[in-house]
């Protein structure tokens, strides 16, 4: 039994040595495999959610993303909707948004890019306020707080 334990211990240690030897040369391949695991995708709270609607304007495009209410075990009562403008964005952005596609406008938004000022005019009672309004590498992004 003692010998078996020694052999098992040494074999485990040698296996670990091999694992370390192949870890760095195989890192890209291992990481690629791990990235394909079903849970290896970013939560919509971080990505902003999938693009639900794309509004192509004169020189820029507005992406309206799906509202995000993700919670741990169940959906939350409050969340946000993310809007992304990209392309050649005007100094003053003014848009009316129907985020839930019910045919009625839910809010109007005015972004003064020069002064970094964002004014929200809620129409729907579900619209709470501006959570984030920031310049990005692709243009401008706004997150509007929502109630479910």
């Amino acid at each position: 039994m003692k010998k078996v334990k020694i052999i098992a211990g040494i074999s485990w240690a040698i296996f670990c040595l091999i694992l370390i030897l192949i870890l760095f040369p195989g890192l890209n391949s291992f990481s690629g495999s791990v990235s394909k695991l079903p849970f290896m995708k970013l939560n919509p709270r971080y990505t902003g959610g999938e693009i639900a609607n794309q509004v192509i304007q004169e020189r820029c495009t507005l992406d309206i993303r799906k509202p995000v209410f993700n919670g741990f075990l169940k959906e939350r009562t409050s969340g946000f909707v993310q809007l992304d403008w990209h392309g050649t964005i005007p100094e003053m952005i003014k848009d009316s948004i129907d985020y839930d596609h019910d045919g009625n406008m839910d809010f109007c938004i005015l972004v003064d890019r020069k002064n970094s000022k964002t004014v929200l005019d809620p129409i729907s009672k579900k619209v709470k306020g501006v959570v984030i309004s920031t310049p990005t590498s692709y243009g401008w992004a706004v997150r509007i707080g929502l109630l479910k």
Binding site: S31, F39, M40, K41, N70
Partner: peptide, 15 residues
């Protein structure tokens, strides 16, 4: 969160 929501709660890049 990975077990229950099948997603990662971090604003980084997956790969």
């Amino acid at each position: 969160p990975a077990a229950f929501t099948k997603s990662i709660i971090f604003p980084g890049s997956i790969i």
